[in-house]
Every structure is written in structure tokens, then in C-alpha cells.
Design a protein around this nucleic acid. Structure first.
Lengths: 224, 224, 224, 224
DNA sequence: AATGAATGAGCCTTCATTCAT
DNA sequence: GATGAATGAAGGCTCATTCAT
């Protein structure tokens, strides 16, 4: 800000941001443990000591990456994406499913990284996972439960809510989780825009049919 | 406890087998990369060189663990578990789903490890993943496709087979993949025997409803 | 000697150079395979990771040592050492032989290491040997062949050039190659400066006599 | 020897001998340090513990190999090979040189191994080298000195004897020592029977010319 | 604010040797 | 007499981190 600033004025906090961007890609691609600091700073065009300087270490860098990816992902594709006013429950479910797919697969940015980062957390949880559950997953689960309840047109027990919600959400996250297997078994699947729309449509239809069948069928409490 | 007393009575099983057992646990728990040979042999009560002697290295040990877990898991819970003669398609689907759940969640042994090992492979593929796809996943996918086709009562396009099969299989693997999240969000879920039966029943019913709804609804080919 | 006192005064030379120097000694003394990185860095007063940091690994360190020894050795004692302008062929041969002896035996530095390093390469070749043949031995062989041709005063067949050149060069390298045997059988031989001059004189005279005798005696082509 | 001997009667000490033969090849080919016991016993078709059982360890096996190769090599090609009665000094020199070449290069057996084993000892001496000097090299050096003295037709000082003898012997051993370099620079050199005869002839002629030139030229004593 | 040099712990692997059969 | 199993030391290398500038 000073008048006599050196010619580094163009990169005030650029190094920090470049590292953050590079780290998001590398962590998403190769995981926390496999990723090396050298790999990240090389991609960011920074010095090897910069990570420790700016973030304090590999762990803290990971946390920073996660938080940025989280906030950016949901900003672009909210759960009520493209919903008309006074939507039907079925429309709300489609929006939920569709926004999830788009967030996870469209573009090269934070959203697609986020899915993979969370997947990594599921396999090898760190302190981040607990934060994401509180911040994001619980609200989403509650949101989905209400949609389901509207579709089934009756109050649901916790058991039923769990079963119905997981039946739906599982069909979405599957494509992210089993990415590597699908790529090998069905190489023609590229998850382009059209394919994602088809996928969202199918998951919604399939699930609505399942839910309707459950309308009159109460599922008993499990033994404690 | 006496000094100089051989402990052979306590370790009748061969070193090779002890290493294999210990390795299955460690690999499932911490993954291939994170697991160290020292950790494994310590748990197995063997010397660090024993792994290279018996298996040739960390990689080959991993392969051996995988194969044992694979064969043991499917030996105990085959895909046609408890099927009556001349089963209906719905019965076959239930057997498929139910055996999957039991294989993945019952007991402390190979089957439960197997699920986590495969999950690890999905997040961080090694050469094993390709083998398991060829050996196991492709046959299972074909098996499931035939069941689905019987239920829908008409031939399916590749697109339809993919969508229907993934809608079903996703509901099963979800509980393994999102294990850590479910444990935190729904701690009462313990995946005991009763719960697994309920789960298998639900997934089958939900899916059959979804499939029946798709009976008359052809899904168009995707644009290339 | 005081605790906490930095010893930078004692090690003004950079770590990289200290490692290079120590490595030359260790490699010359014990050979590439036998030498350990730990041994080298201990001698250099450096950390074990410094070798990988500065050179990339044991192999590359070896290459660096070789190249430094090579260039330093020939810089100090070029093949035309102390030659007058318009030298006679006999003078050129003496310079060739004499410079070889001096390079290989005088001082404690690079030149003396170089001879032993090359000897090691002959017994247990690595990728370096091929490089040294291309870089150094082929040019020297060609140089010697021209001297020999001038002395014999007639063009030489490849066979003759091979025989005459090896008869000369062998008398020089012998003292390096059989160093350990000579030290045991003739302990008074110390290869001091005077002795090296005498040796160079003798080898040159002996060889010139041999070459002169070959002037008129063509050696037939070998059967293929 | 007993009547009731088991059916291993066919291999009374065969294992020991097979190991010895295999070890000679492996040691000559890859050197003492590089050679592994596994490599040797594999080649010999024996168990890995057999070396320690029969010889007591890798070191003792090496000694045993050396002694066998030594005695066998000189039995086949003695220094007076093919000499007529009352030979001239020149004939004796040719026999000396020629037998050396044949011993070192003809056949696949002990003699060719021996040369390489000794070369290894020169680069990295063990206790074996001292034994070979006493047993073999000193007698040969004395033998050569007498031949040289006859050719020069006058008594020689120790200095002269050393210079003349090394000038001759160096031309022979060179082809063994620099084997790897010659194979790369002159791949057409295969050291077949004809080539060895030509080589022996050349070295003898070249050396006799050198010696004759030294007839009248006394070499002064070196300063102590 | 930022960097290149340097560190030390830890990993997988190899190898000669020993042990129990 | 001979063997397969098991051992422990050591080697090269990688990596996150720290230090002095």
C-alpha cells in the first residue's frame, strides 16, 4: 500500500492463494497422505518452505483447503437450484438430487474437488469430517427428510426416515464414490451435462416410485 | 511366563498365516500406503523380514490378503444365499442384496475387511482394483443385470441396465462407504443381525417398486 | 570448542563440495557398491539426506564425483604436458606417458582417485564406464594411435594400431592396476616424483624400441 | 558306506562340489561382495543353508573357490608350455607369455575364472591376495627375471629387473584387466585361439625388441 | 515476506546367518 | 546330512520440517 513498495506489489497474497488452489487439486487427486508438499509448491510455483510459512504445516493447509472448497461448492449449486415458487415435493426432490450431481461433477473447480475430499474423509476421517457433518450433512439430511415426508404424505419414524433418505442419497453419492470402478467398467460414462440431467431424472423417478410404494407400509421399530 | 520357555503352544498357527491375518486388519484399517510392514509384523509377532520371505514384499502381501479375503467372503455368503429351488426374480434380488450386507457386516473376519479394502481401492486405486473388477465386479454386475431384466420383464438397453443396477447396488454399498458418517450421525445404528435383515428387506422392496415403475418406461439413448 | 558456538569458521566450504570430496575418497577406496551414503556423509560432516538433496541419489553423486575428478585430473596434467613447439613424435609419446603417470600418482587429489575409480569400473562396470569410454578413452586412444603412426612412419592397420597401442598403454596402467600387488612384492616402490620420471622415461624408451622393430613388419589381418 | 544307506548314495559330496563350481562362476562374474549366497545355491541346486553347512560362511566358500581355481589353472597351462629341450631365451619368453594368455582366456573353466578372481583381489584385496603372491606371483616373477636376464645378456639391478619385467607382464595382464573396456571399444576382439597366438607372438616380439635396446643402457639406481 | 539449504525420522528391501526339524 | 523358516542388521531413499539468511 505504501508508495515506495517494491515490485512485488502484484503478488500481495498471491503465493498463499496459488498454494491453496494447487493444494485443492493435489489433495483431491492424490489424497492427504500421498500428496507431498513438494508436489503442491511445484504446481503453485512457490518455495518448499512457503507452506509452512503461510499455513504452518501440511495439516493446516489441508484444513484451509477444505473450508474454501466447502463454502465455494454450495454457493454455486444450492439445494433449491432452479426451483419454481410453490414447488411440489417431487420438484423439490429433483432439485435436491440434481443440484447434488451438478455440484459434484460439473466444472473443474471447488465442487468437484470437494466431493473427492469428503470421500477421502470417509475412508480416513480427520477432524474435518466432524465439522462437515455439523455444518453441512445434518442440515441436508433434515432437508431431505422433510421432502421425503411430504412425498410419503405421512409422518415417518426415525427408522423409516433413515431408510428412505439413505436409499435416495446413496444413489447420488455412489457415482462419486465408485468413480474409479465406473470409469473402468463403463468407460463411455463421462458424466457430461446431458448425462447428469438424465441421471438426476432417473434417480428422482426411481426413488419416487420406491417412496410411493412405502406410503402404506410402516416399518417396525428395531429392537434396541 | 518362565524365561526360556518356548511359546510355541501359544502360536500353533504358522507365521505366514499370522502375518496374513494381521495384514488384513492393518490394511483395512489404515490402507495400503499408510500401513507399514513393521506395524503388521509387530501385530503378527513376526520379524520384519518375514514378509519379504513369505510374500516377496508389501505389494504381494497386499495381493495375498485381498485374495484370501475375497475367497473367504464369498465362500461364506454366496450371492445365492438361502435361495429355494426355482426362485422368483424377487427372491433372487433379495438373496443378492442380503448376502452382500451379511458378507460386508457380519463377523470380524475377512468379509468385513474386504469391504473396507475395496473402498480404499476406490479412493486410491492400486493394481488390485483392476483384478477385482475382472474377477468379481463384472460377474456380479452381469448377475444383477439378469435379475433386473427378469423383474422388469423386458430386455434392457445398456443405459437402462446401468441406471437400474447402480440404483440398487448403491443402496447396499452406501452403508459401507459412508460408515464413518453414519456412525457419527446415527450412532444407534450398529448393523447387527436384525438390522441387516431389515435393511436387506427394505432395499429390495424399495428397488422392486422402482423397477416396476420402470417397466413401461424406456430410457432413451444418451447423446454420444 | 565452546558449546553453542557455530563451527562455520571451520567449514567455509559448502556442504555440496564437502560431500563431493568425501565421496571421491570413499568411492575410490571402497568402490561404488561397497561405499555407503552414511559413510560418505559422516566423513563430510553432513546429514544423510544431503546427498539426495544435492545430487539426487547415490548414482548421481557417483557421476558427479567422476566428472569432477576427470576434469580436474586432465586440467592439471594434459596429454601434451610440457611439450615444446613442433615436438618430435618421440617427445609426444613421452609427454603422453609422463602425463599419465603424473596424473595417476602425484598428489592426494582427484587424479589419484580417478585412476582407482576407473579401475573399479573395469572390474565392476556401471553406466559410468560407457561415458568415460566415449568422453576420454576413445579420444586418448586416437591420440596415441597418431603418435604411434608417426613413430612407425607408415599407416597402420586396425590390428596393428590395437597391438601397438595396448603394448604402450598397458605398461602405464599396470602400475595403477597392480598397485596392491606391487606394494606387497616391492615395498620400496613408492611412486615418488623421481620414480615416476624414471618410469615414464623407461616406458617410452622400451616402447619406442619395440615400435621401431615393427617398422618393417606388417601384421596380417586376423581371420574373421 | 553302510549297506543300509539311504538313496542319497548318489550324492555323497556332490552338493559340496556343485556349490564350489557354481560359486567359482558367480564370484568371477559378479565379485565377492555382489555375489549372493542365494544366487550361488540356486545355480547349484542346493539349499540356502548349505553354504554355511559345508563351508561355514560366504568368506570360507570364497577361499575354497580360490584355492581350487588356482591349482587347476596352472596344471593345465604350465609356464613352460610346449617348450623344446634346450630352449633359447626367446623361446622361453614366448612360452611364458603364451601360456599366460591361454591360461587366462581359453575355455570356460577354472583358468578364466582365476584371472578375474585375481583381478578382483587387486582392486579389493583380501587375505587371499597375500597367499597368491607367495604361492604364485613371486615364483613367476623370479622365473621371468631369469628369462629377461638371459635375453639382455647381463646381470640386472633390482630396478632394471622390475622395469623390464613389468613392461612385459603388463602387456599380458592388460587384456584381462581391461577386458570390459576392450569389449566396448573393440567389440571384434573375441580372444579366440588364433587371436591369442597372434597376441602372444606380438607381445614377445615387441618386448624382445625393447629388451635388446636396453642391452647397453644401464638404468641408474633411484635415490632411497 | 520469502527462500534455498539442511535435518532426522521412517519406510521398504536385501542379505548373510541361525534355528528347529 | 540337509533343509525350509525365521532373524536382525544395514542400505538407499523420501518426506515434512526447520534454520539462517
Amino acid at each position: 500500500m505504501a508508495a515506495g513498495m517494491p515490485d512485488t506489489a502484484e503478488s500481495p497474497d498471491k503465493t498463499r492463494q496459488r498454494i491453496l488452489t494447487a493444494a485443492a487439486e493435489v489433495f483431491a487427486e492424490t489424497g492427504f497422505r500421498n500428496a507431498t508438499i513438494r508436489q503442491i509448491v511445484e504446481k503453485a510455483g512457490a518455495n518448499i518452505a512457503a507452506v509452512n510459512y503461510h499455513f504452518g504445516g501440511k495439516n493446516q493447509l489441508y484444513t484451509a483447503v477444505f473450508e474454501q472448497a466447502m463454502s465455494a461448492g454450495f454457493a454455486e449449486y444450492p439445494v433449491n437450484l432452479d426451483l419454481p415458487p410453490d414447488p411440489t415435493p417431487e420438484q423439490r426432490l429433483l432439485a435436491f438430487v440434481r443440484s447434488f450431481f451438478l455440484r459434484a461433477f460439473v466444472g473443474q473447480g471447488c465442487g468437484t474437488h470437494l466431493g473427492r475430499l469428503i470421500l477421502r474423509e470417509m475412508v480416513e476421517p480427520t477432524a474435518e469430517l466432524n465439522r462437515r457433518i455439523t455444518d453441512t450433512m445434518r442440515p441436508m439430511a433434515e432437508h431431505l427428510r422433510q421432502i421425503v415426508q411430504q412425498i410419503v404424505s405421512r409422518p415417518l419414524s426415525d427408522d423409516e426416515a433413515f431408510l428412505f433418505s439413505t436409499s435416495i442419497i446413496s444413489q447420488v453419492v455412489f457415482h462419486k464414490h465408485c468413480r474409479e470402478v465406473i470409469a473402468r467398467m463403463f468407460p463411455s460414462r463421462t458424466y457430461g451435462r446431458d448425462e447428469l440431467e438424465q441421471l438426476a431424472r432417473h434417480v428422482t423417478d426411481f426413488s419416487i416410485a420406491g417412496l410411493h410404494a412405502m406410503r402404506s407400509k410402516a416399518i417396525g421399530k428395531r429392537a434396541p
